[in-house]
Design a protein around this nucleic acid. Structure first.
Length: 283
DNA sequence: CGCAGGCCCTGGTAGC
DNA sequence: TGCTACCAGGGCCTGC
């Protein structure tokens, strides 16, 4: 599941292969992959054909190609999206949704997405920041990230703190895996109301989220299966760095208590019941 | 504006 | 073996 570290790994992997090259042919193989491109599939193909990619940028879980003429090709990988560099002779696999072919002898690019939650679109004038993601907050790795402002924004919300951590308009890039890991590191229960946490605790939490994601970037991201791989099809190896996520029934690496799984907003939360006291136990 | 819940989607697997 | 039910979950949308 691509969160910030996985998207960063992919953006960095793409950069040397796509910047400075001209997209020769665009093939949309599944209409759902361009459902957010307002003016339709053929317009998407027309907009992207012949364009020179000048840069690759990322904010949170989104990445985009900066195109000549000031536009952008925006990409969100959803849950299972991949950007794969493939030699021109490689025929598209079953889940290839969009093919970007080049006229030069370098590799082509396949947007692969089994579960079709991902998408691409062309954003007019989106070079610096595509319009569809102007509501997405900066992520902790952005040079303009403001810790104090983010702490304040988190503490204005009355929802459970994990919900707020996952809200991409508050802080971007954090998904279910790194939210659970950050909460465990900061010893905070996922259901604590955000506005009842002291400023210093929220600051700790953001620090831990940033740290765990930085470690994951160094490991090339987290791969549970072959749904997340880098641009060359290789898995990341941060799974061994996880302390709670996916580890129900195993001992907490810090205190030895048995890690539990809870249903939370229709997804799983993994936590240590001793290190992370629930709101009712907290006082 | 904040908040909570539903929906989109596919492949793998558990259970009968 | 073949069926059904459920699970993974990010972000958009709706209704309050």
């Amino acid at each position: 599941m691509p969160e910030l570290p996985e998207v960063e790994t992919i953006a960095a992997g793409l950069r040397p292969w796509v910047v400075g090259r001209q997209i020769a042919t665009v093939r949309v193989l599944h209409p759902r992959a361009v459902r957010r491109h307002g003016s339709g599939q053929s317009d998407f193909e027309a907009q992207l054909t012949g364009r020179l990619v000048e840069g690759v940028r990322r904010r949170g879980k989104y990445l985009w190609f900066q195109l000549d003429g000031g536009d952008a090709a925006l990409i969100h990988l959803g849950m299972s999206g991949q950007m794969l560099l493939r030699a021109a002779y490689v025929r598209p696999g079953p889940h290839v949704r969009i093919q970007l072919d080049y006229a030069d002898s370098g590799p082509h690019l396949h947007f692969v997405d089994q579960r079709t939650f991902g998408h691409m679109l062309v954003s007019r004038g989106g070079y610096e920041l595509p319009a569809p993601i102007q509501h997405i907050a900066v992520d902790p790795f952005d040079e303009s990230f403001d810790v104090d402002a983010t702490v304040a924004r988190v503490r204005r919300r009355s929802s459970e703190v994990k919900r707020v951590l996952l809200d991409q308009t508050v802080v971007s890039g954090i998904g279910n895996i790194y939210a659970d890991e950050a909460l465990w590191r900061a010893r905070i229960h996922f259901a604590r109301p955000a506005n009842r946490l002291p400023r210093a605790r929220v600051r700790d939490l953001l620090y831990e989220a940033t740290t765990v994601m930085a470690e994951a970037v160094r490991a090339g991201g987290t791969s549970f299966d072959d749904l997340y791989v880098d641009v060359n099809g290789r898995s990341g190896y941060f799974e061994r760095g996880l302390n709670v996520y996916g580890r129900e029934g195993r001992p907490c690496p810090r205190c030895g208590a048995t890690i539990r799984r809870a249903r939370f907003t229709n997804r799983s939360s993994f936590f240590c019941p001793r290190c992370q006291r629930s709101p009712r136990q907290a006082h």
